[in-house]
Design a binder for these strands. Structure first.
Length: 574
DNA sequence: GCCGTTTTCGGCCCGACTGTTTTCAGTCG
């Protein structure tokens, strides 16, 4: 974990502690903001500090003089005295409870002061023995809600990978659309922004019969719990795992509500700040000048009122998109369905299940021009990697199929292992026979920094793409140690593309690195890493990451036509 | 604690909901 993430966590904990201690809410907010900014900041603060000192740190939005000094203190000494001081006044165990729905700093403080609660165990005890309910401002219902929140929290403490929520949302929306009372309907929240993981799932709709719509919603198949069901809002648990909220709003507010519930929170705060300066008010019900409502049926209304062009949801993270919209400089993002093929798919030759014929047919059905069949190389025994003889058989077979195919083509490719010394698992004479070579790290020693291995692989004239550059798995592992900044630099220098691996648990490179790469002129290659035909839909997850990374069509290899792609691949070797 | 074509001081997004109250505090998104 880099220093940015560590500091983000320190400041976040500090905010919670200050909240508990009843500090000035705006000071707490400042720490929370600093935490959020650092969490996603693409450059290591350590680097910024080494290059430009505290003066450079304060240029980061949300970081001022005081926090910059704390960051410097951390880099120099490995600790922050103020942090130690604040945190020592609060039982650590208790702070975690602030993530539970229904528990906030005031409730914790109350239990701490009045009942001597010092741990989660203590808290659960006063919850069940009735002593918390007796305190002023508390009551039986509040306690019941907290109990429910705690139960839910323990079951769903992990965020859900986007790729798991995706089919579910399509299913729910599909079912709801069959109901005649439902007019417009859309997912919103982090799901609509295509964030790599989502907390709960928010769906918004308009319709004539709120109660009827909610009733229909809470009775959909697969629901294992109903948390709330009113006229305008329903909240359910799907398959014991996914919380899905539905809101029904009037037609004239649909755009404003869609904007509001899509977020991100930071993006919305930014918009409201601008609105205020213009004497306008934005809420989920519309855009208002005094009492006059000047828009809200369409999402565009909100942006137009502020003098902005409509901002695609994937960009709404307050990472420069508002300024870009104001200047009319938003990128023309690549569209879903615009990509011309998948650049990383496995076949039955190695560890996939699809045949070459099936892949070709699938490509045609999807309207793609190509699929790159990139099976594992000989060293990857666990994945039935291909020896040279088998590889050449496969190449031959692909050439045959392509000759008889009118529509889509297959690219003869490989996902070749990068060996411990940075050389590749096939000799150059073999690689040069292939249309597309993607190289990947599949084995590394614990604690090994693989940066040099990958840098060296990129020097090879036959390597076109580096697959899943960080090796992370969203749900289970952090990935290998690698300096992505240096990979991006080397990719720019050698004309090597970096992959956006679209497999739902990888999404690697991630959105922020994609943006960095794109800014430096590095091409990105979206590949699903599909091992069966049922995984090719994940190309949309990859496009989502590309869009969150501000990619325009020309940033993606997948935008090239078949012939152009072959030419691009040959150009590196000269 | 941050920030500045309203400001170096005095603001900081804002409305809904819930449960506990009798005018509001706490929490959420």
């Amino acid at each position: 974990m880099g220093n940015n993430k560590v500091l983000a966590e320190l400041f976040s904990k500090m905010a919670d502690a200050l909240d508990f201690l009843g500090e000035n809410p705006f000071k707490i907010g400042a720490y929370r903001k600093a935490s959020r900014v650092l969490e996603d900041y693409p450059t290591e603060v350590e680097e910024i500090y080494r290059d430009g000192g505290v003066g450079a740190l304060v240029k980061i939005p949300g970081i001022g003089e005081r926090i910059a000094k704390k960051i410097a203190e951390y880099i120099e000494t490995g600790r922050i005295r103020k942090y130690d001081e604040v945190i020592s006044q609060v039982p650590q165990d208790l702070l975690g409870l602030m993530d539970v729905q229904g528990i906030g700093p005031k409730t914790l403080k109350l239990a701490y002061d009045q009942l001597g609660v010092r741990s989660v165990e203590d808290f659960k005890r006063v919850l069940s023995d009735g002593s918390l309910a007796k305190l002023p401002g508390m009551g039986q219902k509040k306690v019941e809600n907290i109990k429910k929140g705690l139960e839910l929290y323990e079951k769903m403490s992990e965020r859900i990978p986007l790729g798991l929520a995706y089919p579910l949302v399509q299913e729910v929306i599909g079912e709801m659309e069959k109901f005649p009372a439902v007019r417009s309907i859309s997912a919103c929240g982090s799901f609509r922004r295509m964030k790599e993981t989502v907390g709960d799932i928010d769906i918004l709709c308009t319709g004539s019969d709120g109660r009827g719509i909610v009733d229909r919603f809470v009775h959909l198949p697969g629901i294992t719990g109903v948390l709330a069901a009113g006229e305008t809002k329903g909240s359910v648990i799907f398959r014991d795992r996914y919380q899905v909220d539905l809101r029904v709003v009037p037609k004239e507010s649909y755009g404003a509500a869609l904007q509001y519930f899509t977020g991100s929170k930071q993006h919305n705060i930014h918009l409201r700040t601008i609105a205020k300066g213009l004497g306008l008010k934005i809420s989920e019900y519309g855009v208002f000048r005094g009492e006059d409502r000047i828009g809200g049926e369409e999402e565009e209304d909100v942006y137009r009122a502020l003098g902005l062009c409509w901002v695609p949801p994937e960009l709404r993270e307050d990472l420069g998109e508002v300024e870009a919209a104001a200047a009319g400089r938003l990128p023309q993002l690549v569209e879903y369905g615009e990509v011309k093929g998948d650049l990383h798919v496995h076949s039955r030759y190695s560890d996939g299940t699809g045949t070459l014929e099936q892949l070709l047919q699938e490509a045609s059905q999807r309207g793609w021009q190509y699929i790159a069949v990139c099976d594992h190389s000989q060293g990857a025994r666990y994945a039935r990697g291909l020896d040279v003889k088998r590889l050449m058989e496969k190449v031959e077979r692909i050439r045959e199929l392509n000759r008889s195919s009118r529509g889509a083509k297959l690219l003869a490719g490989t996902e070749v292992d990068i060996l411990p010394d940075g050389s590749l698992d096939y000799p150059d004479e073999v690689l040069q026979e292939l249309d597309l070579v993607i190289a990947a790290i599949h084995s590394w020693r614990k604690e090994e920094d693989v940066t040099e291995r990958i840098l060296r692989a990129m020097e090879n004239p036959y390597v076109h793409v580096i697959a899943h550059p960080t090796g992370r798995l969203i749900s289970t592992r952090e990935g290998y140690r690698v300096d992505v900044e240096r990979l991006i630099e080397q990719a720019a220098k050698t004309g090597t593309a970096l992959e956006i691996n679209a497999y739902y648990d990888r999404l690697d490179l991630n959105d922020l690195y994609v943006r960095r790469a794109r800014d430096q002129g590095v091409k990105l290659a979206i590949g699903t890493d599909a091992h069966n035909l049922g995984q090719l839909w994940m190309i949309d997850l990859g496009v989502g990451v590309a869009r969150r990374g501000w990619c325009e069509p020309q940033d993606l290899l997948n935008s090239l036509d078949y012939e152009e792609l072959l030419r691009w691949a040959r150009r590196k070797a000269g």
